[in-house]
Design a protein around this nucleic acid. Structure first.
Length: 719
DNA sequence: CAATCAAACATTTTT
DNA sequence: TGTTTGATTG
């Protein structure tokens, strides 16, 4: 019976799942069972004949979330997997454009540029246009293009306000022209193109609007302007939009996400009050209380308070180390203790604000012999050997793909140097043809022989594609191109060879929707789903990642490290209030990852960019009620670390009441300490910087303002 | 063309 | 401080 699926729901969840027609906004707190609500809602709609599978579109941000939804759904219902549109924004846009490639003005086998490909394309374009990459850093151009596309703005729609901006706009237009010429689309283009096409094609629009009566959106707080417009276009005036999100977990504003879309939705789709899912099934009471107390410091929230019936649980443990190494050692010791008590390493995570912080942690973990896994970094389909192989595959599918051709024309080295490539580019520009066509037409050049061999290789591969199965083709192309031999000759090529074999396995098991389009579909899959973040799964290992990467995950024990002003909240976000609020939401996300045990750690002294810093404790620490915490720092016992003292322990000297909150600097100075200077009078130490023997203090003088003083010379005395 | 060196840079990054 | 990028050089 379907009602079994409803039985375990709490009243709010049940209400959300069984809503009638009309649009709704579900404010789903961390750990409140939002995925369950989303999937049960879909199942309920179908089971009660409110909709058929084909009438449903469910949109997520990550492939992982889409997969999970699909898996859970098929456990509840016998599903026609192709009938329902479940996927990421980009995945669905891709599906849409593949179905209507002609209307979209795209070649049938259009390929998708990932960020790397896009950057390469931009660099190539700028070289051709002779634009200085000094004045216009390609990354900035890329950001300019993507930001505007995500605002729904084409180059023609922009009004440049100065020469610099005008040049960027010009590059944007030229880039789009290049993409059209080459039949490629970048990530943002998938959405923008499908948006524009549906917007201008009434018949198609009515068709899809009639089809999708229910549109469900996950992580709605992360939608950007274009995604919102895209959804509105598909929804039309009649569809029911069911949006699930949490404004307190909006941590991607820096990438264009607009939390305001939640309020916008309420206004645009006549949503009454949002349904709040506040019961949390993940964390203990103390952890939730801390999260609630913290997030209350933000303004303009939709308002929500997490609660649990699980009991208060353990106190939140605080630790303040002398320096970053000491902080890391503390974490190592605690992890060992937790493990002794039977905890699995995979159920523990160390979170940090920025990737650079992982080094010190990794060092300590390595020394301790604790297995760990760092998230982030290169993913499977982003590895160079994989991209090389895919480039050959792309040339087989469409030899006019200049990006792909440039990538592998001389990989492995086959005597086609930069000179030859430049000639080729000149020829292609002059004759207005692709590089491939230019290469084919290149008769008597000096390097004609090696170029001719390359042309022959690709032509041969294209012929082979006719007779081989897809998997055979992939395998064959890796060998025939010389890639395999190249990595076999490389003494460090073992991993790369393994990855190439894994690519063949992926090709073997790849199930295309349209077998005739298997190459295009495989390539799209590679771009849209870059693959799991590196291998290394299986072994029980401590999980290291940024707070951003931890969103959506949960662990029995969580360490949030580096809780210092300037790091977390990050100094670059201190300028405006919105920045600090986003940092606070990030902290909220970090806290709510923990089920049973939460540690908040910091260091009094930290090496950053080759400079020693003496940061103040993070403001977020003070926003957590002391009644929920337990301090494990050695500063409380005034003794040396029982875990071993790392680095030089700062000189004692400070009065206790201040020493407990503020860092002790070399020489016994403290941040916040009142001092007197013979010339400047009285002041307060605001900040410090140490470089070897040199110590500089930033002192705010009552009469003379804030000054940096070199303590090798300055005559400063405690007030 | 590969190897080596200096310079620049260092927040987060679902697709 | 440590890494990545590019430019230079053999």
């Amino acid at each position: 019976m379907f009602s079994d699926h409803l039985a375990g729901l709490n009243p709010e969840q049940l209400r959300a799942v069984t809503l009638g027609a009309g649009s709704a906004l579900v404010l789903a707190g961390a750990g409140s069972g939002k995925t369950r609500v989303l999937t049960t809602r879909i199942a309920w709609l179908i089971a009660n004949q409110r909709a058929m599978a084909a009438n449903i579109m469910a949109v997520t941000f990550t492939n992982k979330a889409a997969r999970e939804m699909h898996t859970r759904l098929s456990a509840m219902l016998p599903l026609n997997p192709r009938g329902m549109w479940i996927g990421t924004f980009h995945g669905l846009a891709n599906r849409f454009l593949r179905a209507h490639w002609r209307d979209a003005g795209l070649p049938q086998t259009f390929t998708i540029l990932d960020m790397q490909d896009q950057l390469a394309a931009i660099k190539r374009l700028m070289k051709a246009l002779q634009v200085s990459d000094e004045k216009f850093p390609p990354r900035q151009v890329q950001a300019f293009i993507n930001n505007h596309k995500e605002q729904g703005l084409r180059a023609e729609a922009l009004k440049p306000y100065d020469a610099f901006n005008a040049k960027l706009t010009e590059l944007y237009a030229a880039y789009d022209a290049q993409c059209r010429r080459e039949g490629v689309v970048d990530f943002a283009e998938l959405l923008l193109r499908s948006y524009e096409m549906l917007n201008s094609n009434e018949a198609l629009r009515e068709h899809y609007r009639a089809r999708f009566s229910h549109i469900l959106v996950d992580e709605f707080q992360d939608t950007n302007k274009l995604q919102y417009a895209w959804l509105c276009l598909f929804a039309g005036p009649h569809a029911s939009v069911f949006a699930v999100g949490d404004d307190d977990q909006s941590i991607y504003a820096f990438r264009g996400a607009e939390v305001g879309n939640m309020r916008r939705l309420m206004a645009d789709f006549q949503v009454g009050e949002p349904i709040k899912l506040e019961q949390n099934y993940r964390s203990c009471g103390n952890i939730l209380d801390a999260a609630n107390a913290l997030i209350q410091h933000n303004d303009g929230r939709l308002g929500k308070n997490l609660w649990t019936d699980a009991g208060a649980g353990e106190p939140i443990r605080l630790y303040r180390g002398w320096n970053d190494a000491d902080e890391a050692q503390f974490i190592v010791d605690e992890v060992r203790a937790l493990r002794r008590d039977g905890g699995a390493l995979a159920e523990m995570a160390v979170l940090y604000r920025s990737n650079a912080q992982s080094r010190v942690l990794e060092h300590a973990l390595f020394q301790a012999g604790l297995p760990y896994r760092v998230y982030g970094g290169l993913r499977f389909f982003e590895r160079q050997e994989i991209k090389h192989a895919l480039a050959y595959l792309r040339l087989v599918a469409s030899p006019d793909d200049d990006n792909a051709l440039l990538r592998v024309i001389n990989v492995p080295a086959r005597g086609i140097g930069a000179r030859t490539v430049e000639n080729l580019q000149t020829a292609s520009r002059e004759r207005g043809v692709s590089l491939w066509q230019a290469a084919c037409g290149q008769g008597g050049g000096r390097s004609a022989a090696s170029l001719g061999k390359f042309v022959l290789l690709i032509e041969q591969l294209r012929a082979d594609a006719e007779r081989l199965s897809f998997a055979q083709l992939v395998s064959h192309l890796i060998a025939a191109s010389g890639l395999r031999a190249m990595y076999e000759a490389d003494k460090d090529g073992e991993d790369r060879l393994e990855n190439l074999d894994e690519l063949i396995s992926a090709a073997v098991s790849f199930a295309p929707e349209d077998p005739a389009q298997i190459i295009a579909e495989f390539l799209a899959h590679a771009s849209l789903e870059a693959g799991e973040h590196q291998a290394g799964a299986g072994e029980d290992a401590l999980q290291l990642m940024t707070v951003h990467a931890a969103k959506g995950l949960e662990f029995a024990s969580v360490f949030v490290s580096g809780l210092e002003e300037g790091l977390f909240p990050h100094e670059n976000s201190l300028n405006d209030a919105h920045g600090v609020e986003e940092e606070r939401r990030l902290m909220y996300v970090a806290i709510t990852r923990a089920r049973q045990r939460l540690y908040l750690t910091q260091a009094q002294q930290r090496m950053l960019h080759g400079q020693t810093r003496y940061p103040l404790p993070s403001r977020f620490m003070e926003e957590i009620p002391a009644s929920l915490t337990k301090n494990l720092s050695e500063t409380m016992t005034a003794g040396l670390s029982s875990r071993g003292n790392h680095g030089t322990r700062p000189a004692p000297a400070a009065p206790r009441h201040q020493a407990s909150t503020n860092a002790v600097l070399p020489g016994g100075w403290r941040i916040g300490q009142s001092v007197t200077h013979p010339k400047f009078g009285s002041g307060v130490i605001l900040n410090a910087e140490a470089l070897g023997e040199e110590l500089r203090l930033y002192v705010n003088f009552a009469e003379h303002g804030a000054k940096w003083l070199d303590m090798r010379f300055a005559k400063l005395t405690p007030a």
